[in-house]
Nucleic acid binder design. Structure first.
Length: 440
RNA sequence: GUGGCCGUAGCUCAGUUUGGUCAGAGCGCCGGGAUGUGGCCCCGGAGGUCGCGGGUUCGAACCCCGUCGGCCACCCCA
């Protein structure tokens, strides 16, 4: 059996990888202009980082973590999500507040693989620690909304809810529990068993039985304490002001225990599978304390790269668009010219590739055509004798002319007519880190 | 973790119902048509232990079991 990637993992090869680069660049442009800085933290952590924050009772911690013991007997876990490690880093390093950071990371969960669900997937995320200001919730949500829109996505929706806080949630849970207990015979077996520990979970159950039992259940958002209600109102007001459409969803209950107050989820309507959540997050005002830090509010969002790109595919936007080469060098007289000319073009800042193994001219020109290069430089016996190189366009009719070998780089640059290594659009409206050329 | 569907060339698939020239097609790749010119076209070629292992049979890609992998749903999440 040939070696293959573990179940639920996948390779991202060129040209698909160019979309990942472009997405990363777009994300960075959007968040860095709002003051978020990139942070790298270890891919694995002491398992307690996740147990304490995400919660022992959660599915992610309870049955999906890649947990292992290292040679020193420490119990570690591959990160199943991005927030807990970032908060751990904050607790340990104590950067000045407010601390706004972003990350790009793989995340690992031992689940049954499915379309849009992997054992190793990748997330782009934001965390903002310090302020409890609801305007920060609005900022995080609207940044994500702006990113999705600048990718070209339109078929997605935002649902928001409030989980309340330590003051109002216990009372609400009692209300909900009482409501559900009266109808416990209607609940599915799984959630009947969870009634005592976490009645909230029944709210987002998709089974018809539970749906019926929870249809007229009290909503958390209707039982918030005054500060939480004011916070939530301000968030909604802010989203309205920012022009970010949303739906209130009292069933939106996310699976991590650390959430307080605002929670939200973006879902793509273009994805037909059940895995249509492209981004989600919320406020976690107690998480820093849970991990041993001082009381510090925070909010964050995680965006799934794979699902986001699946959504782009489904909507036909943000296509794979590999960077074309400026020139491709064809050499049928031994390869020295190809070696030297290609290197000279690279030194001149041009993108150039060449053929190898002394293949036939036809084969080399086919390779040139396939490479996507804008032009081909041909060196054969005639050119060697004349001290020239034939520069032929690979676009359109294929006009060809001779240029002196000493001035090849200048000739290539001149016939490009424009610049080739432009920086991204400083306005921030980037769709790719590289300039895109029109292909006739 | 539970349930269902699936696994044939690099890719997308036909063939499995009725076990016996069933190892095929398109695309891609390589070469040639064009003794120096790509894309289109034409001709030719390479490439497959029919996921893997076991079983039934005179004979299995085709039937049975197991296993690995993929997909779909549940659960949960990105």
């Amino acid at each position: 059996m040939a070696a293959r990637a573990p179940s639920g993992t996948h390779d991202v090869l060129w040209p698909e990888s160019t979309r990942w680069e472009s997405l990363l660049a777009l994300f960075a442009a959007h968040v860095e202009r709002a003051g978020y800085g990139l942070a790298h933290t270890p891919i694995f952590e002491d398992v307690k980082v996740f147990r304490r924050g995400i919660g022992e009772g959660s599915d992610v911690v309870g049955k999906e973590m890649y947990e292992f013991e290292d040679r020193g007997g420490r119990t570690l876990a591959l990160r199943p999500e991005g927030t807990a490690p970032m908060v751990r880093a904050f607790v340990q390093r104590r950067p000045p507040l407010p601390w706004k950071a972003w990350y790009a990371t793989p995340a690992f969960r031992y689940e049954r693989p499915q379309a849009g669900r992997y054992r190793q997937h990748h997330q782009l995320g934001l965390e903002a620690l310090g302020p409890s200001d609801p305007d920060l919730d609005v900022e995080v949500i609207s940044i994500a909304d702006g990113i999705f829109r600048s990718l070209g996505l339109t078929a997605f929706g935002l649902r928001i809810n409030s989980m309340g806080d330590d003051v109002c949630r216990p009372g609400y849970l009692d209300l909900l529990r009482a409501h559900l207990e009266e109808r416990s015979d209607q609940l599915c077996a799984e959630h009947r068993g969870r009634l005592e520990a976490n009645p909230l979970r029944a709210l987002d159950c998709k089974r018809d039985e539970c749906r019926a039992a929870t249809a007229d259940a009290p909503g958390l958002a209707d039982h918030l304490c005054e500060p939480c209600r004011a916070h939530f109102d301000r968030v909604r007001q802010g989203l309205d002001a920012m022009g970010v459409p949303y739906q209130l969803d009292h069933r939106l209950v996310r699976g991590f225990d650390y959430y307080t107050r605002t929670t939200f989820e973006f879902a793509s309507a273009a994805l037909v599978s059940a895995q249509n959540g492209i981004g989600g997050g919320g406020r976690y005002d107690r998480l820093v304390e849970m991990l041993g830090g001082p009381p510090t509010p925070g909010i964050g969002i995680g965006i799934g790269i794979e699902r986001l790109l699946l959504a782009c595919d489904a909507e036909g936007v943000f296509p794979v668009d590999p960077v074309p080469l400026d020139a491709f060098v064809v050499d049928v007289v031994g390869g020295e010219a190809a070696r030297d000319i290609t290197a000279a073009l690279h030194r001149a800042g041009l993108r150039a590739d060449r053929a190898y193994d002394n293949r036939s001219m036809k084969a080399q020109l086919k390779a040139a055509d396939r490479s996507g290069a804008l032009m081909v430089l041909i060196v054969g016996p005639d050119e060697v004798a004349a001290g020239t190189v034939s520069l032929r366009s690979l676009r359109g009719a294929g006009d060809q002319r001779s240029v002196p070998i000493d001035g090849v780089a200048d000739a290539v640059r001149a016939s490009l007519g424009g610049t080739t290594l432009d920086p991204p659009d400083p306005s921030g409206n980037v769709v790719a880190p590289h300039p895109r050329k029109d292909h006739p």
